[in-house]
């Protein structure tokens, strides 16, 4: 018990530190590393609770694939510079966010600590955990019998996701949104017309300046836009 407690405290500290790092550190790469720390901590906690298989795939999938993907995107797209987080353009976003976070935490804790078992409802009637043999065998049995449709559907989901990602990352030369697709009178159309009008104004203004270069008109009126 003492070993497990020690493991828990250590892993929990790593998790919390990592989580705080994700939120507080400014460099996206550091954020990603903090995330890995949390994921690792969670994996350790899984092991601590006997979920060996989940711990392994947690590391393989999350750390090995997902965060690596994050790092790829960060590095390849060149957004690995520190972001300016000092200025918050949205009024009240931060205090509200923190308040909401605290509220979620507080309410969850109240629910967990005061309600105990009642928060979870009834226990499921799948296979019990404490059976002889590795946990992956029991998990596999449940997945391939009771949840076989869900399992197959997630397979389809993954396939669709892969295809979607390929389509999304295909480089095209057309603009993302084909403005001509939108019928007259929609918001996009209105906005485009506004842009056109602005552009026209600019052209007009330029023309004006060019046409009457030596009148008294303030050149900055037309030229500086």
């Amino acid at each position: 018990m003492r070993v497990e407690m020690f493991t828990f405290l250590l892993a929990g500290a790593i998790c919390l530190g990592g989580a705080l790092g994700v939120v507080l550190l400014k460099n996206p790469v550091h954020n990603a590393l903090s995330l890995v720390a949390t994921l690792f901590g969670v994996a350790v906690l899984f092991v601590n609770q006997g979920a060996y298989f989940l711990a392994a795939i947690q590391v393989i999938v999350y750390a090995g694939a997902i965060v690596i993907l994050f790092l790829f995107v960060i590095m390849l797209l060149g957004v690995d510079r520190e972001t300016d987080e000092g200025r918050e353009p949205l009024v009240a976003q931060r205090p509200l966010a923190v308040a909401t976070g605290l509220a979620i935490l507080g309410l969850s804790l109240v629910a967990l600590l005061s309600a105990g078992q009642r928060a979870t409802g009834d226990k499921a009637d799948l296979a019990p955990l404490n059976q002889p043999g590795p946990d992956i065998n029991h998990l596999a049995e449940v997945l391939f019998t009771r949840y076989v449709y869900a399992f197959e559907i997630t397979a389809v989901l993954l396939t669709v996701a892969v295809v979607g990602a390929v389509v999304l990352s295909k480089r095209t030369n057309e603009p993302l949104i084909d403005l001509d697709e939108f019928p007259e009178g929609t918001v996009v159309d209105v906005r485009r017309r506004a842009d056109d009008a602005k552009a026209q104004d600019e052209v007009d203004a330029d023309a004006e300046v060019v046409a009457v270069p030596d009148t008294e008109g303030d050149p900055q009126e037309g030229g500086d836009d």
Binding site: Y52, F53, A55, A56, I57, V59, I60, A63, G64, P134, D135, I136
Partner: peptide, 10 residues
């Protein structure tokens, strides 16, 4: 470990 060879992949 139980997950054996998965450990290596991890």
């Amino acid at each position: 470990p139980q997950m054996g060879i998965l450990w290596m992949l991890a």
